[in-house]
């Protein structure tokens, strides 16, 4: 253990002995990792929006504008008694208009309307969320009188979900490519280190150093470089999100919204660090396995 720590100490000293090249390496790794990480953060944010809508599947049932109050009551009763429906909410034309004024930022425009153009609406919560059940219910309701339109509210969310699946595949490909580049960067860094420390390795082998003793500082270096690269990526992403949110705040204010992009969660951040540290270690391990074998005392 103390041997491990004293070797770690030596590794740290070596890392900071050439601060410029070490930091440039860390920066290269950080930038490479920040691309897939940034895409991941954007996808997470999009995912959050979708889930808010897709989590509780519901149907919006719009009535024709000339539906009378007693017909509305009948329809409501009929809907509530339907075996596939869990609950029904009624949003009157007046309520709908009020909500639109509040929520869209178009209050002034709506205030200038002569007539309320909105219909009475039922929000129908079905008992099951499966796509088939929802579509069957929609098709059945379409045939009822006085129902102008039946809309499956999760439709667009599902389409977006499919789009996100595509984006996730792209993310995986990008991440795999850049992970490979991280391994390659570390492989090369360690190769150069082994070459410059050839004498030391030869002497160490001659006086009885085990191969794990000789490999350890290089593995530590790769791990450290990967870890700091991951940290740099996290920092780049966090800074970028803060900047994006600043300009997003202006945009959102124009739309009366308070939408902001969420930061990388601590758990995801730690996964990033673990992943980048592992890749650094892997690059170092490959390099050490490849190059140390060739150095033997003569």
């Amino acid at each position: 253990m103390s041997q491990f720590l004293s070797q770690l100490n030596g590794t740290l000293r070596r890392f900071f002995a050439t601060p410029v090249s070490s930091l440039l390496n860390v920066l290269v790794i950080g930038i490479a990792l920040s691309l897939p990480t940034g895409l991941y953060v954007l996808l997470q944010n999009a995912q959050g929006i979708i889930e808010r809508f897709a989590a509780a599947p519901q149907l919006s049932v719009f009535l024709t504008l000339d539906t009378k109050a007693d017909e509305v009551a009948q329809l409501r009763k009929r809907l509530e008694q339907h075996s596939a429906i869990a609950s029904v909410e009624f949003v009157s034309r007046a309520q709908a208009l009020e909500q639109l004024k509040q929520g869209s930022g178009l209050g002034d425009v709506i205030g200038g309307l002569e007539h309320n153009p909105l219909p009475d609406t039922f929000i129908v919560h079905p008992k099951t969320g499966s796509v088939q059940a929802l579509e069957a219910l929609r098709d059945e309701l379409k045939s009822w009188r006085r129902l102008e339109r039946v809309q499956l509210d999760s439709d667009w969310a599902r389409r977006l979900e499919a789009l996100l699946d595509f984006a996730r595949t792209a993310l995986l490909l990008l991440a795999a490519l850049l992970a490979l580049s991280l391994v390659a960067i570390t492989f090369n860094t360690i190769r150069l280190q082994i070459l410059t420390r050839r004498d030391e390795i030869e002497v160490a082998k001659l006086i009885g150093a085990s191969s794990s003793f000789i490999r350890r500082p290089f593995l530590q270096f790769g791990l450290l470089q990967g870890l700091l690269g991951g940290l740099a990526a996290w920092g780049i992403i966090a800074t970028a999100l803060i900047l994006l949110n600043l300009s997003l705040a202006d945009l959102a204010r124009l739309y009366d919204s308070s939408f902001i992009l969420n930061q990388l969660s601590p758990a995801d951040g730690c996964t990033l660090l673990a992943f980048s540290a592992f890749l650094g270690w892997l690059g170092a391990w490959m390099s050490v396995t490849q190059h140390l074998r060739k150095i033997e005392p003569r």
Binding site: K205, L206, I207, G208, A209, S210, S211, F213
Partner: peptide, 12 residues
């Protein structure tokens, strides 16, 4: 893997 332990016993 055993060579290091031999060499620790030798002064070279």
């Amino acid at each position: 893997a055993a060579i290091p332990y031999l060499r620790r016993n030798l002064g070279l």
